[in-house]
């Protein structure tokens, strides 16, 4: 549905006398399949928005090419515009207009006739549970309501693909969950959804496939499960009193299912295993058999943050 090869964009910005060049996107290759929720995960400044704006024909790439819903981005941007929807990160509604007015106008800008535009606006207001405030000015809406209007605008012309730039940033947890449902509904209706996010849990829970972006480059791509599986396996953390730790380490180090073992300074062990669920009972039996008391045992499954950490050397939470 979306295929990009070597997409690049640099910005020249002037700071005082000097001109600086920022390589915002440095050669991005992506393959997004039809009907999936594709997530672009990366910290602020990674180049997510710039990539999206190139794909949405808002800025011209410096290099590379892309095919979007069958249309060539460089040769036929007008056709790309007809086939996609785009919802910007910073909002796109006018304070003094009502949701209905915005929806009708936006539909008409896509060439849809007046009567049909009104029908679609009514349907969208209904689908996004906005009917109650449809004729109130946008400035009176809550953050979540406004975001829903914006998504409704992005899909009013029934595009094949919709790009959502950080659709849940700044929303409270409840509106966020609501938004996830809306996005899943779009997928259920057959749309391909391309979202950007810097939330790990969002990428994990919502997206069918993700690309992790850092400093203008895609550093990893796959389903969340695949990406997590690729690294390290799982970790069983055994809590022990300091005196008991060396003895336990001795016992467990020889076990076949333990790939690697680390001692925790204040007492306890970290066991790297392939599958924690089967390792835990064996660890318990072994320690119990040797008469060692353990204080706690916990299983740590790798998160997307661990993936990010292995690929970039930094944690996404910190950046």
């Amino acid at each position: 549905m979306i295929e990009t090869r070597g997409l690049r964009k640099s910005f020249r910005s002037r700071a005082g006398r000097e001109t600086k060049t920022v390589d915002a996107v440095r050669g991005v290759n992506l393959d997004v399949a039809e009907g999936e929720i594709f997530g672009f995960l990366g910290p602020n400044g990674a180049g997510k928005t710039t990539t999206l704006r190139m794909l949405a024909t808002l800025i011209e790439p410096d290099g590379g090419e892309a095919t979007i819903a069958g249309a060539d981005l460089r040769k036929d941007p007008a056709e790309v515009r007809r086939r996609i929807g785009y919802v910007a990160q910073g909002g796109s509604t006018w304070d003094e207009s009502t949701a209905r007015e915005e929806l009708v106008l936006h539909a008409r800008l896509y060439g849809i006739g007046k009567a049909e535009a009104h029908r679609r606006a009514a349907r969208a207001l209904d689908a996004f549970q906005l009917s109650d405030y449809a004729d109130r000015k946008c400035k009176t809406y809550s953050g979540g309501q406004r975001r829903r209007v914006e998504i409704a605008l992005g899909i009013i012309h029934e595009p094949k693909i919709v790009f959502l730039d950080e659709p849940t940033t700044g929303l409270d947890p409840q509106s966020r969950a609501h938004m996830w449902d809306e996005i899943r509904r779009l997928r259920a209706e057959g749309m391909t959804v391309f979202i950007t996010t810097h939330y790990l849990d969002e990428a994990d829970a919502l997206c069918d496939r993700i690309a992790i972006m850092d400093h203008g480059e895609v550093v990893a791509e796959g389903t969340p499960a695949e990406l997590k599986r690729e690294i390290s396996g799982e970790v069983v953390i055994v809590g022990l009193d300091a005196p008991a730790t060396p003895r336990a380490a001795e016992l467990l180090d020889t076990e076949a299912y333990v790939n690697k073992l680390e001692t925790v300074d204040e007492g306890g062990l970290r066991l790297y295993v392939d599958e924690g669920a089967t390792a835990i009972p064996q660890v318990l039996r072994r320690l119990d058999g040797a008469g060692l008391d353990l204080r706690s045992i916990e299983l740590h499954r790798p998160s997307l943050d661990d993936v990010f950490l292995t690929k970039t050397g930094r944690s996404l939470r910190e950046s």
């Binding site: 949405a56 024909t57 808002l58 007008a78 515009r81 007809r82 996609i84 929807g85 785009y86 910007a88 910073g90 909002g91 796109s92 509604t93 006018w94 304070d95 936006h106 800008l109 896509y110 060439g111 605008l153 012309h157």
Partner: peptide
């Protein structure tokens, strides 16, 4: 003001 509100960008993604 429209630019800041994102209205111009929203218009520019349409074929208008």
């Amino acid at each position: 003001a429209e630019l800041r509100a994102g209205v111009i960008e929203r218009s520019r993604v349409t074929p208008v």
